[in-house]
Simulated assay, not measured.
Amino acid sequence: MSESKKKNEWLEWVKALIIAILIAFFLKTFIFATSIVEGESMDPTLQNGERVIFNKIIYIIDEPERGDIVIIEKPYKNYVKRVIGLPGETIEINSGNLYINGEQYEQTFLDEDAQRQTGNFGPQKIPEGSYFVMGDNRAISKDSRNGLGFIEENEIIGRSEFVIFPFDQWTLTR
């Protein structure tokens, strides 16, 4: 192989590597990112230490929906929670039963024990531009009921799509 052919081949490899790095940087910055689940507030849906990939662009083109598992950015920590109430709705929890605008809502993502541990809350109207979120492990979750308050739309930085680590736990989170 001639010297110029070797040089061209190396140059092509370097270009391909730079393009791959730029694409990865673009995807991580604007489209997808990872977050580590800290604590047991989303148990059993998500476990402590699991790493999830979240979609950063979805809420630029759409709005959070009830049931979405979202990443919430606060000044010192990110939280992983489930959207329960939407802007303008009235939320009430009575004896573990969730009521949205006065109608009981079936929480299919919870088992009976978790639902019983939810306690009482409200009724309280969610301000426009804000959301009501809770963890699936209601007994210990820091959420809109106790500490986080209503979550403003700009604090929601993405929707959890699937678990990527540990590898034997690969699963969709929606």
Results as ranks from 00 to 15, higher is better:
residue 130 S to M: 13
residue 108 T to W: 10
residue 99 Y to V: 09
residue 132 F to K: 05
residue 109 F to G: 02
residue 115 Q to M: 13
residue 133 V to K: 00
residue 121 F to K: 02
residue 126 I to F: 06
residue 112 E to A: 11
residue 128 E to Y: 09
residue 128 E to T: 11
residue 123 P to L: 09
residue 95 S to E: 11
residue 124 Q to K: 12
residue 135 G to W: 00
residue 132 F to M: 04
residue 117 Q to E: 08
residue 94 N to S: 10
residue 102 G to I: 13
residue 124 Q to F: 05
residue 97 N to T: 13
residue 126 I to W: 04
residue 123 P to E: 13
residue 96 G to C: 06
residue 107 Q to W: 04
residue 108 T to G: 14
residue 103 E to N: 15
residue 96 G to R: 13
residue 130 S to L: 03
residue 98 L to F: 08
residue 134 M to D: 01
residue 128 E to I: 10
residue 122 G to W: 02
residue 125 K to A: 00
residue 102 G to Y: 09
residue 97 N to I: 12
residue 109 F to Q: 08
residue 125 K to P: 03
residue 115 Q to Y: 05
residue 127 P to W: 01
residue 125 K to G: 02
residue 110 L to I: 12
residue 125 K to C: 03
residue 106 E to D: 15
residue 101 N to W: 12
residue 123 P to R: 01
residue 104 Q to A: 15
residue 126 I to T: 06
residue 94 N to M: 11
residue 119 G to T: 09
residue 99 Y to A: 08
residue 108 T to D: 15
residue 118 T to K: 03
residue 103 E to K: 13
residue 113 D to M: 03
residue 123 P to D: 13
residue 117 Q to A: 02
residue 100 I to A: 15
residue 109 F to M: 11
residue 105 Y to C: 13
residue 130 S to V: 05
residue 111 D to W: 09
residue 101 N to V: 11
residue 134 M to S: 05
residue 119 G to W: 07
residue 95 S to G: 08
residue 117 Q to I: 01
residue 113 D to Y: 07
residue 105 Y to Q: 15
residue 134 M to F: 00
residue 98 L to C: 14
residue 126 I to K: 00
residue 119 G to D: 00
residue 116 R to P: 06
residue 95 S to R: 14
residue 136 D to I: 04
residue 123 P to N: 04
residue 116 R to G: 03
residue 131 Y to K: 01
residue 121 F to P: 03
residue 122 G to P: 00
residue 118 T to V: 04
residue 124 Q to N: 06
residue 108 T to C: 09
residue 95 S to M: 07
residue 126 I to C: 05
residue 125 K to R: 10
residue 125 K to E: 05
residue 107 Q to I: 05
residue 121 F to C: 06
residue 123 P to W: 07
residue 98 L to P: 11
residue 121 F to G: 07
residue 132 F to R: 00
residue 135 G to F: 00
residue 102 G to T: 14
residue 110 L to F: 03
residue 96 G to Q: 07
residue 101 N to D: 14
residue 97 N to W: 08
residue 126 I to M: 02
residue 100 I to C: 13
residue 118 T to E: 06
residue 113 D to A: 09
residue 112 E to G: 10
residue 104 Q to C: 13
residue 110 L to D: 03
residue 135 G to P: 00
residue 108 T to Q: 14
residue 122 G to S: 04
residue 119 G to A: 07
residue 115 Q to H: 10
residue 108 T to R: 08
residue 111 D to V: 02
residue 112 E to T: 05
residue 130 S to F: 11
residue 136 D to M: 01
residue 122 G to K: 01
residue 122 G to R: 03
residue 101 N to M: 12
residue 112 E to Q: 11
residue 133 V to S: 04
residue 123 P to T: 08
residue 132 F to T: 08
residue 112 E to K: 15
residue 115 Q to P: 04
residue 111 D to A: 09
residue 116 R to W: 07
residue 107 Q to E: 13
residue 109 F to V: 11
residue 123 P to Q: 07
residue 119 G to L: 01
residue 120 N to L: 07
residue 118 T to P: 00
residue 125 K to F: 02
residue 113 D to R: 06
residue 136 D to Q: 00
residue 100 I to T: 15
residue 109 F to T: 06
residue 114 A to E: 14
residue 105 Y to N: 15
residue 97 N to G: 10
residue 130 S to K: 03
